[in-house]
C-alpha cells in the first residue's frame, strides 16, 4: 500500500471541491500565499497595466494628455530608427538563444549522462560565474574584446595579427558573445533537468531494438529532452531582447538595442508614453517570436520519430 493512497486523502481527493475540509485546505493555502501574491500584483501586474495605459496617451511637455491614441504605436512600428532597433534586438536575442542552447546542450548532456559522482560539482561550477555581478561580467568582456584588450594583445603576441583589430568591440557581435556567455547557466539548467528525467532504460531499449548511439540519441534522448530545450530557449530569448547593460557597454553605435531607446524615453527624451509603447511592442513581438520557437521545436521533435 502506498502512503499517498491512504495517508493523505486531501491530495488524492483534489478533484472534489465541495468538501468542507478541502475548502479549508484551499483557504489556508491561499491565505498563506496571499501576501506574496498581493506583492506581485502591486509591483508587477499593476505596473505593467500602467505601462500599457501610458502607451495610449501622449506626452505634453511636463504633463500627460490622457486622450486615447495609437500614435505611439505608429511611431514605434514605422519610425526607421525604432524599427531598426526592434529588428536588431529580435535578431540578437534569437541568435543568442540559438547559440546558447546549442552550446549548452552538450554540456547538459555530458553532466547528466557522464557526470557520474561529480554531477553536483559540475553543476556548482557552472552556476558560480552566474552568481557574480552581471555588470562586472559585461565589463570584463569589454576588457577582453577592447582595442588594447586581452584578445588583441594575445593575438598580436602570437603573431596572428600585426596590429590591434577594432572589429572585436562595439558591434552586435560583441553583444552576442557577451550575452551568450551571460545566459549560459540559464540554458544549461533546464536542459539538464529534462535530461535527468529521461529514463535510461528507454535508451537501452532503443539500443536493444537495433539503434546505434547516434540514432538512439536522435530518436529517444533528444525528443524527450525537448521540454528542457524549449524552456532554455524562452528563458534566454525573452530577457535578452530587453537587455540594457550589454549593448550600452560593448555594443557601441552598431550594437544599440531597443532597451537603450526605451531608457532614453524615460530619461533624457522624457517621452513616457512613447517609451511605454516601445516596451509593450517589444513584449508582444518577443512573445510571438517565443511562441513561434516553441512551435518549431515541437515540429522538429515530431520529425525525430
Amino acid at each position: 500500500m502506498t502512503v499517498a493512497a491512504e495517508g493523505s486523502p486531501p491530495l488524492r481527493m483534489a478533484g472534489a471541491r465541495r468538501n468542507p475540509l478541502l475548502q479549508s485546505e484551499a483557504v489556508q493555502g491561499f491565505a498563506l500565499i496571499s501576501p506574496t501574491f498581493v506583492y506581485a500584483l502591486i509591483l508587477l501586474v499593476l505596473p505593467i497595466l500602467v505601462v500599457i495605459a501610458h502607451s495610449f496617451w501622449t506626452q505634453n511637455y511636463l504633463t500627460i494628455d490622457h486622450t486615447f491614441t495609437l500614435e505611439n504605436y505608429r511611431i514605434a512600428l514605422t519610425e526607421p530608427i525604432y524599427r531598426d532597433l526592434l529588428w536588431r534586438s529580435l535578431y540578437i536575442s534569437l541568435t543568442v538563444s540559438l547559440l546558447t542552447v546549442a552550446l549548452a546542450y552538450p554540456i547538459a548532456y555530458f553532466i547528466s549522462f557522464h557526470g557520474g559522482r561529480h554531477k553536483s560539482l559540475w553543476l556548482f561550477l557552472i552556476t558560480i560565474p552566474f552568481w557574480t555581478s552581471y555588470l562586472l561580467r559585461v565589463m570584463s568582456w569589454k576588457v577582453i574584446l577592447g582595442y588594447n584588450g586581452v584578445l588583441n594583445s594575445g593575438l598580436m603576441g602570437l603573431g596572428i595579427i600585426s596590429e590591434p583589430s577594432d572589429a572585436l568591440l562595439y558591434n552586435s557581435t560583441a553583444v552576442i558573445i557577451t550575452l551568450t556567455h551571460a545566459w549560459a547557466t540559464f540554458a544549461i539548467l533546464p536542459i539538464f533537468v529534462s535530461l535527468e528525467k529521461v529514463d535510461r532504460t528507454l535508451v537501452e531499449a532503443a539500443t536493444d531494438l537495433g539503434d546505434g548511439p547516434l540514432r538512439s540519441f536522435l530518436r529517444v534522448t533528444l525528443p524527450l529532452s525537448a521540454p528542457g530545450v524549449i524552456s532554455a530557449a524562452l528563458i534566454v530569448m525573452i530577457p535578452t531582447v530587453g537587455d540594457y547593460v550589454t549593448p550600452k557597454l560593448v555594443g557601441g553605435k552598431d550594437g544599440v538595442m531597443i532597451a537603450n531607446a526605451i531608457q532614453a524615453q524615460f530619461g533624457k527624451a522624457s517621452n513616457w508614453p512613447l517609451g511605454a509603447a516601445l516596451s509593450v511592442t517589444t513584449m508582444i513581438i518577443v512573445s510571438l517570436m517565443a511562441g513561434a520557437t516553441v512551435l518549431v521545436i515541437r515540429a522538429l521533435q515530431r520529425l525525430a520519430r
Partner: peptide
Amino acid sequence: GPSGCGKTTLLRMIAGFDT
C-alpha cells in the same frame, strides 16, 4: 484489509489526525 479499505482512515481518526 487491502489498500483503500479505510483502515488507515480509522486509525488516523482514533489518533486525531482526521475527523
